[in-house]
Design a protein around this nucleic acid. Structure first.
Lengths: 348, 348
DNA sequence: AGCAGGAATTTGAACGATCAAATTGCACAA
DNA sequence: TTGTGCAATTTGATCGTTCAAATTCCTGCT
């Protein structure tokens, strides 16, 4: 086998012109059925595939999505990005889109990478993860009229309706609300919460989920709830320490009889520290949670990925002002609570 | 700002021809220094970047590496691929290479993806992970003269010298040898091994590392060592079960006083089951191990990534027969033993 | 001054696809 | 028969770059 067949080869074999072959590929409906058949036969016979770079050069579209891959400093929850990446790659491929990776040391560096990839016409849209309030990356992308969608809300004022950019996010409020409600339904009353210090968009959202569910279902007041929540850095050890504090109680504060956490890392620490004495629910449904039988809130990353792609390829084409105002500019998907057997840890 | 500047714009501003600009970019040494300066100034002034697709079309090189991303069924060790991906992306970028992802449901599907990406001229080399004996993917790639490097040995007969393809791997034998030796140095004598059933290239290699270290340093014979090794599927629960069996001993077999494992999943199970009674060493140094203070063998994924890129861009250019026979066709890197504090688990 | 010979630079063509405009084919009405 | 209108197809130009060959520029030598 010599060189790869070009559109010209296909045209010759099928006895038509280049453009007709191109039309069969890109707008089949304007080609007469019998010619179309002849062309598709020739394509199959030669094993022809369009040269993507040539196509990109002409159409000025790269059909490629750029996404940054993190340095894995996340600890246990690192696999969330990994799973999202898989879902995104898979669903993008189904739509003829490719996923290209890049790394960056900090937000400013990431912006430099944006410029590099845009200038090289390597990608025509970006997917951002881990957004935060006043994120310079989204500002740059908006200014430079780059298509992008974020996995994560902008976390600003009225972020839910912010028309400035397109986003998909998981409803952490709902996830912790569900988890807490499930524990209340099991007869628990003093459900504690272990989360991260404010301000944290994601963290505060999750805490509110717990808080609202408790307010509605536990009979406790705002003031009584306050000592049941602990803010601590993420990690297994802090999680264990927090749980011991909650179990010990304090003067005038009874111990908790269950706990929900903002992450599986915290939950793992809590699970080990509690030694199965009280139920623990984590967040992210990481492999560790699955392995240990830890209940957890699972983010439906498939849905997030499809939502991201929809915003990227839909009416807005990744640009908030490009589509009709009636089209949704964001999507909030509901996580799923995974309840597992209560006593997973082998008794030593 | 209108359209992106092209090489022609740069040429006009610098008062030279297209080709001279091209030369400044691709072979600066043949351009006279003062012209070169004029051109680079113009490039900086306009913020020019070559259009990668145009370049790819002309040169028939994509400067892009394709790598499959797994569906994360790996459990706890899944993050190894993630970390490798990060290292690869980072180092590839430093050499002007891009990393493109794809997914596949099985080896045959992966081969179809190879063809798709090759035909679209999207990538010009592949990086394979998780190779196994008689891997159909490597066969296809060799037949079709595709550039590729594997992370993992071919695991065939005389794989260490197999000239058929280029590979980089981590010396699992050495890792377990180190781990075992470290335990022996601490005064342990009956170090057990929990691993996977044969045949498993990686698994058998790691078991041999333990075996050889024990033979040399424990004073036990081949026959005495046999009952100290347990083969079991990967996972936390199997790891716990295996450890309990090893701790219980059997008629004529004393309990173990330490244990090394083929994975962090197994080690985590063992760690929990042993409740800190004996030291446990895992493999992969996953976030879980770091979080729990579990000793583990760390794969130097940076080194693996740079080794892969060296083989891809070096004399062989990703094709085993392309370079001089004297050039190394593979690279075996040594893992690093990370010893952590012995009793990380809080006593319930 | 004239010329050889190499270095530096420029010019025309090509990579493989799509776009825009031109052309052909065909059915039907005048 | 001839023209009209629309559908189907073809032709020439172009995207931005690099290759290959042609050209210009310079230096040193006779």
């Amino acid at each position: 086998m010599g060189a790869l067949p070009t559109i010209h080869d296909v045209a010759r074999v099928a006895g038509v012109s280049r453009q007709t072959v191109s039309n069969v590929l890109n707008s089949p409906d304007i080609v007469r059925p019998d010619t179309r058949d002849r062309v598709t036969t020739a394509i199959a016979e030669l094993g022809y595939r369009p040269h993507e770079s040539a196509r990109r050069l002409r159409t000025r579209k790269s059909s490629t999505i750029g996404i940054r891959i993190d340095p894995m400093t996340d600890g246990i929850s690192g696999s969330v990005l990994d799973r999202f990446l898989h879902a995104l790659t898979e669903q993008a491929a189904a739509q003829g889109l490719r996923v290209m990776l890049f790394t960056a040391t900090d937000p400013d560096d990431e912006i430099r990478q944006f410029a590099r990839l845009r200038d090289g016409a390597d990608v025509d849209a970006f997917v951002l993860t881990s957004t935060f309030h006043g994120d310079p990356r989204t500002e740059w992308l908006i200014e430079n009229e780059q298509s992008f969608v974020t996995f994560g809300r902008p976390w600003g004022i009225d972020d839910m309706n912010d028309p400035a950019h397109l986003w998909v996010d998981v409803d952490g409020w709902w996830g912790l609300h569900e988890a807490t409600t499930a524990l209340l339904a099991q007869g628990r009353r003093r459900v504690g919460y272990i989360g991260w210090p404010s301000p944290s968009g994601t963290g505060d959202d999750r805490r509110r989920g717990w808080h609202d569910a408790m307010l509605a279902g536990s009979g406790l007041t705002d003031a009584q709830l306050a000592p049941l929540a602990i803010a601590t850095p993420d990690g297994v050890t802090p999680g264990g320490a927090a749980l011991r504090a909650l179990l010990a109680g304090s003067p005038g504060v009874d111990p908790v009889d269950a706990v929900v956490c903002a992450s599986d890392s915290l939950a793992l620490g809590a699970l080990i520290a509690s030694a199965g004495a009280i139920p623990v629910i984590g967040y992210d449904n990481t492999p560790v949670a699955q392995a240990l039988g830890l209940s957890s809130v699972e983010q439906p990353l498939d849905e997030v990925a499809s939502g991201v792609l929809e915003l990227l390829t839909g009416a807005h084409r990744g640009r908030p002002d490009a589509g009709p105002a009636t089209d949704p500019r964001h999507r909030l998907v509901r996580p799923r609570l995974v309840l597992r057997s209560p006593a997973p840890l082998p008794t030593p």
